[in-house]
């Protein structure tokens, strides 16, 4: 059952990610990216990391995607302009070469890293599962000798950032 769910989510993530790159309309790309993030969140649930899954949905699929949408709408780009042929002719081969080298490098790196640590590292560790549980994170975060003060200090930091953004960005009257 879990395996089937994994394949569904994995396939969804890969297909939607590929489609994000292939769209001409940036709005469609953003929508597909949300689907891709949702599929990733599903994978996190399968990995016994519900907290990561929830933050993935709230922060990435929620907040950050809204930001992307705003930018797309602000720039008012209904569809991507095709590059002028003169530029495209010169830029594309060089860009392709660089991209190919980079992806080869990344693949080589992955293979090397996996061969170094071995696949046994991925075996289920029962202790690891409970670390990312919401209860554990909550009690660590709000325990008096834990990160309670850091949490509150961060809230002041964010408040300062908000005031700053408003005061610097608002219209002069």
């Amino acid at each position: 059952m879990e395996v089937i769910a994994f394949y569904i989510f994995a396939l969804l993530a890969i297909v939607t990610s590929l489609l994000v790159v292939g769209q001409r309309n940036p709005m469609h790309s953003v929508m597909l990216l949300i689907a891709s993030f949702g599929a990733l969140a599903g994978l996190y649930v399968l990995l016994d990391a519900p907290f990561t899954a929830v933050t993935q949905i709230i922060i990435y699929a929620g907040a950050i995607m809204v930001l992307f949408l705003f930018v797309v709408m602000l720039l008012n780009l209904p569809r991507e302009e095709p590059a002028p042929p003169a530029i495209a002719g010169r830029a594309r081969p060089a860009g392709l070469k660089i991209a190919a080298v980079l992806s080869l490098l990344l693949a080589a790196e992955l293979v090397w890293a996996l061969s170094r640590i071995g696949l046994g590292w991925f075996a289920q560790d029962p202790a690891a599962a409970s670390v990312s549980s919401v209860t554990r994170i909550g009690s660590r975060l709000f325990a008096q000798d834990g990160y309670a003060f850091a949490f509150e200090a961060t809230s002041i930091l964010i408040l300062v950032a908000m005031i700053g953004a408003v005061v610097l960005a608002r219209k002069e009257h």
């Binding site: 990160y147 003060f149 850091a150 200090a153 961060t154 002041i156 930091l157 300062v160 950032a161 005031i163 700053g164 005061v167 610097l168």
Partner: peptide, 21 residues
Amino acid sequence: DLLIIFLALEVLSLSVYVLTG
């Protein structure tokens, strides 16, 4: 605690950046 020093550093820096502008 170094973590708190970092957070405090950011609180004071952010306020001063904005005040500068």
